[in-house]
């Protein structure tokens, strides 16, 4: 059998993250785990350290890129931006804290159980590398292909989140923000996050995304998603906007006229799916954002007030009188 030879693609990038995670593991986590008698968690701890390092780097990069952009050409200026700080809290929880740990542990266990069961029955689950062996060792190319497939899945998840009344009730928390900035990407109801995790995991399992590649994949995509929420007058041009989702394109999705069960520009990173399925709108220009139909707490409440308001709306959505609404 011919042996696939892989270049060290991505090795340098891995080194920085891996060595930083190693430092966290050796100097912070292991002394803690050993002291608490929890050394059985040391492998999981290293996985979390990788997630946390990826997340922290990604927040720093997002901040360094988006903040100057928002100061340079803001779409809106506000007398105070208190509502934005809650969004920053969402980001910290979502990208560095508990959620990455849970995501990693759950996804890993799920993948092991599913794929192991299938392997027991003599069937090795499909992966892109098995279908196309030339991809083995081609980390950047493989990474890009996985990203495209996952972005396609994300388009449909988002489309469905707007179509179902109960799902929109949860997702409306994301749309309620009238002071939309690059922090707003992570302001989601926790149940909406849970559904997104199940969705993403199911797709990732089906196409065989490697667990240790999973965080990098998610975080690169999430950086681009953060950028698309930025409060900045920025377009990638008539061609660029059709290749990658710009702040201008995504703002049309967050416009008050697009809040509801029918919207436009559902894509997360690539606008290709909106163009392909007729949901793209390149005409709207930097509309005000928000969801006028929701409780005020969804827009300006504290973290827990927002979660509570989202849950109430979710429960109300099952009552007979609730009807799907469309604005505009």
């Amino acid at each position: 059998m011919a042996e696939p030879q892989g270049p060290f693609a991505g090795a340098v990038m891995e080194d920085v993250f891996g060595l930083a995670a190693g430092w966290v593991q050796e100097n912070l986590l292991i002394p803690l785990l050993y002291g608490l008698g929890l050394m059985r968690w040391e492998d999981i701890a290293f996985g979390w350290a990788l997630f946390a390092v990826y997340g922290a780097c990604q927040v720093v990069v997002t901040f360094a890129v988006c903040l100057p952009l928002e100061h340079w050409r803001p779409v809106e200026r506000w007398p105070n931006n208190n509502a934005v700080w809650v969004d920053a809290l969402y980001t910290a929880i979502s990208r560095i804290g508990v959620l990455p740990l849970v995501t990693f542990v759950l996804f890993y266990r799920l993948q092991v159980a599913t794929n192991g069961y299938l392997a027991d029955h003599g069937w090795v689950p499909p992966t892109l590398e098995r279908l196309f062996p030339a991809l083995l060792g081609q980390q950047i190319l493989t990474f890009a292909l996985y990203a495209i497939v996952l972005d396609f899945a994300e388009y449909w998840r988002h489309w469905l989140a707007h179509r179902f009344r109960w799902w929109w009730a949860l997702h409306s928390l994301h749309h309620a923000q009238r002071q939309m900035t690059f922090w707003s990407d992570d302001r989601n109801h926790i149940l909406d996050d849970l559904i997104a995790f199940v969705w993403f995991s199911a797709i990732a399992l089906a196409i065989g995304v490697p667990p240790l590649q999973f965080p990098l994949l998610v975080l690169v995509l999430r950086f681009l998603e953060s950028l698309s929420h930025a409060n900045v007058r920025l377009s990638f041009g008539s061609i660029g906007d059709r290749l990658l989702i710009s702040p201008r394109f995504h703002r049309a999705h967050h416009g008050i006229k697009a809040a509801g069960v029918r919207s436009c520009n559902y894509g997360a990173v690539l606008p290709w799916w909106d163009i392909l399925f007729g949901t793209a709108d390149f005409a709207h220009d930097y509309a005000p954002t928000g969801d006028p139909s929701g409780e005020e707490a969804l827009a300006t409440g504290s973290y827990w007030q927002q979660q509570g308001a989202g849950l109430r709306r979710f429960i109300r959505s099952f009552s007979a009188t609730a009807t799907p609404r469309r604005i505009g």
Binding site: E3, P4, Q5, G6, F8, T127, E129, R130, L136, G137, P210, P211, L212
Partner: peptide, 9 residues
């Protein structure tokens, strides 16, 4: 001198 890629872990 080189790496042999494998599937996962």
């Amino acid at each position: 001198v080189r790496r042999i890629p494998v599937l996962r872990e």
